[in-house]
Simulated assay, not measured.
Amino acid sequence: MAEKFPKVEGGGSLILAWQVKNKKVLVVGGGEVAAGRVLNLLNADAKVTVISPRDGLNDEVAYRIDHREVQYFDRKFEPSDLDDDQITMVLTAVDDPEASSQIWKLCKERKIAANIADVPPECDFYFGSVHRDGPLQIMVSTNGNGPKMANIVRRRIAANLPPNIGNAIAKVGELRKKLRAVAPGNDQGPKRMKWYVAVVMLFKSTKLTYSRMSNVCLQWSLEDLCDMEEEDMSQLLQYYTPDKVPSLNQIRLGDDPDEWKFDGSFGWACVV
Rank of each mutant, 00 (worst) to 15 (best):
K4L: 15
P6V: 00
P6D: 03
G11H: 12
G11D: 00
G12H: 05
W18T: 10
W18I: 11
Q19N: 14
K21H: 03
N22R: 04
K24Y: 06
V25Y: 11
V28E: 01
G30Q: 11
G31A: 02
G31M: 10
G31R: 02
G31D: 01
E32S: 14
A35C: 01
G36I: 08
G36C: 10
R37P: 05
V38R: 14
N43A: 15
D45T: 09
A46S: 01
V48P: 11
T49R: 13
T49H: 11
T49S: 07
V50N: 08
V50D: 03
V50R: 07
S52V: 00
S52F: 04
D55E: 14
D55S: 09
L57R: 07
L57H: 00
N58Y: 10
D59H: 14
D59V: 13
Y63M: 07
Y63S: 02
H67A: 07
R68N: 11
E69A: 01
V70Y: 08
Q71M: 11
D74N: 06
K76R: 02
K76P: 01
P79Q: 11
S80K: 06
D81N: 02
L82E: 03
D83N: 12
D84K: 03
D84E: 10
D84L: 10
Q86I: 09
M89W: 03
M89I: 06
T92R: 06
D96Y: 06
P97C: 08
E98P: 11
A99N: 10
A99W: 07
S101G: 15
Q102I: 15
W104V: 07
W104P: 05
K105F: 13
L106R: 06
C107G: 01
K108I: 09
R110Q: 01
K111F: 03
I112A: 02
A113L: 14
N115L: 01
I116P: 11
A117I: 10
A117R: 00
A117F: 09
D118A: 09
D118Y: 08
P120Q: 02
P120C: 04
E122A: 08
D124Q: 02
Y126S: 09
Y126C: 13
F127I: 03
